[in-house]
Design a protein around this nucleic acid. Structure first.
Length: 152
DNA sequence: GCCAACGTTGGC
DNA sequence: GCCAACGTTGGC
């Protein structure tokens, strides 16, 4: 069992959108970064815990707890010419972008970026590293426990 | 809107 | 394979 933090712009998919989705589950579409893709394709397992993070918004921070509920499969938006995530270089017989489904577990009071930065226990979190732009980052068990037991 | 940081592209 | 140019991310 591993732990992750996944960023989503709430304008596109917020924790409430996830909560209101059928089965409270959404496919994690739109990742177009190889490192983030590799995490979903190669390392994630069904049942992994996911911190759901709101980014590029007035109040960035952790907004809820979710979990991985599928094995990897091709992101359908890469083949849809009308999608902003369309990738003309990707072919169905050799899909470039893979994703997993993520399911709502619970909403948390928003744990802001500033709050996360206050705690020495979280100082090494990948998502807080200077210059980090990865939308999916690993979270250690200690970080997960600190956040889920102490900050929510 | 700014801009630092980073990933990708493409010419060579 | 190098690396400059360009595009994107994302907090502020």
């Amino acid at each position: 069992m591993r732990y992750w933090l996944m960023k989503s712009e709430p304008d596109e998919a917020s924790i409430d959108d996830l909560s209101n989705a059928p089965e409270r589950t959404l496919p994690w579409t739109g990742v177009r970064n190889y490192q983030a893709r590799n995490f979903m394709r190669d390392t994630m397992r069904v049942g992994d815990g996911v911190l759901f993070y709101h980014s590029s918004c007035p109040e960035p921070g952790i907004a809820g707890l979710t979990k991985v509920v599928s094995t990897p499969y091709p992101d359908p938006t890469q083949f849809d010419p009308k999608s902003p995530y369309y990738d003309p270089k990707s072919k169905p017989e050799e899909p470039r972008w893979m994703l997993v489904d993520v399911k709502f577990v619970k909403k948390t009071p928003l744990i802001s970026l500033a709050e996360l930065r206050k705690h020495a226990e979280l100082a090494d979190m990948r998502v807080l590293a200077k210059g980090n732009r990865l939308s999916i980052t690993p979270v250690t068990e200690a970080e997960w426990r600190f956040i889920t037991e102490r900050l929510t």
